[in-house]
């Protein structure tokens, strides 16, 4: 049951990911990204990581893709198909990706080819929250400082510095 659910979600994620990197319309690529991220959230759910699946949907689909769509709007992205969206070196890129997939895939198969996993329901918000605030408190605080720094950096970058020499 878990395997079937995971396989369906994984197949959807793969198809949508391929569409994200090959679609000739930028807005369509961004919308396929929603499908890919949602399908990966489904994979998380199939592995009994319900809280991470919900965070994935909230943060990725709810915030990041909306941010990407806003950026597309602000950069006047055309909605018609653009053949020039992919560079001429895309065959080389495909070769690099295939070789990397072969190396990583063979390594993973050699290392974990016979292992089985049995997902147990331990991915509730209570379990993850307890782990975050009991074991992982220091990384959590460091991460909040990092997020604040990124926020300030984004504000500073997007400020209009009209005056020269400022």
């Amino acid at each position: 049951m878990t395997t079937a659910l995971f396989s369906i979600a994984g197949a959807v994620a793969l198809l949508a990911a391929v569409m994200v990197v090959t679609s000739r319309r930028i807005v369509h690529a961004a919308l396929w990204l929603v499908v890919a991220l949602g399908a990966v959230a489904g994979c998380f759910g199939a592995l009994h990581a319900e809280f991470v699946a919900l965070v994935q949907i909230l943060v990725y689909v709810g915030a990041i893709v909306v941010l990407v769509l806003f950026a597309l709007m602000l950069t006047k992205a055309p909605t018609n198909p653009l053949p020039a969206l992919t560079t001429r070196r895309s065959p080389f890129a495909a070769v690099v990706a295939l070789v990397l997939a072969l190396i990583l895939g063979s390594g993973v198969v050699l290392a974990f080819g016979n292992e089985k996993l049995k997902p147990v329901p331990d991915g509730s918000a209570e379990a993850v929250g307890t782990a975050v605030f009991r074991t992982w408190v220091l990384p959590f605080e460091v991460l909040s400082v990092l997020l604040l720094a990124a926020l300030i950096g984004a504000i500073v970058l997007s400020q209009r510095t009209g005056k020269k020499g400022d």
Binding site: G10, L14, T75
Partner: peptide, 30 residues
């Protein structure tokens, strides 16, 4: 469920991402 299924899916997704970063021209698609 074999552990290899999610791992191979992750490998495939990662390599699709690598292809996208190398082949795309628009910075937002990267």
């Amino acid at each position: 469920m074999p552990l290899i299924i999610p791992l191979l899916l992750a490998v495939a997704l990662f390599c699709i991402g690598v292809y996208g970063v190398l082949a795309r021209r628009n910075a937002i698609t990267m």
